[in-house]
Amino acid sequence: MANSSDGDMKEVFEYLANIKKAVPSNNIYIKTTNSIQRQEVIPIFWAKVAACLLISYIASEIYLSSKLYNTHKNDISVLISKTNNNLYNE
């Protein structure tokens, strides 16, 4: 039993050993060097730093404008409540 199973696996390994070597396309080298050149023009680290700065700038702008909007809203509501409480006939 063990021998037949060993024989089966031997056949499997022969199949694996018979896989032929493939030749890669020349395009891979061109693509690789292009990627490296792009990386050299804008290093990933600095691209990440720029992205972080942009995100924090946009976030702070949104925060400040929403804060400003809320203050305006409060001002108006105070004015409205004042006028409503006045008795004009007096």
Partner: peptide
């Protein structure tokens, strides 16, 4: 997929 991996390997090597 093998081409993509090859490309990434040599970018790492660089």
């Amino acid at each position: 997929d093998a081409e993509e991996i090859t490309q990434d390997v040599f970018i790492k090597v660089f």
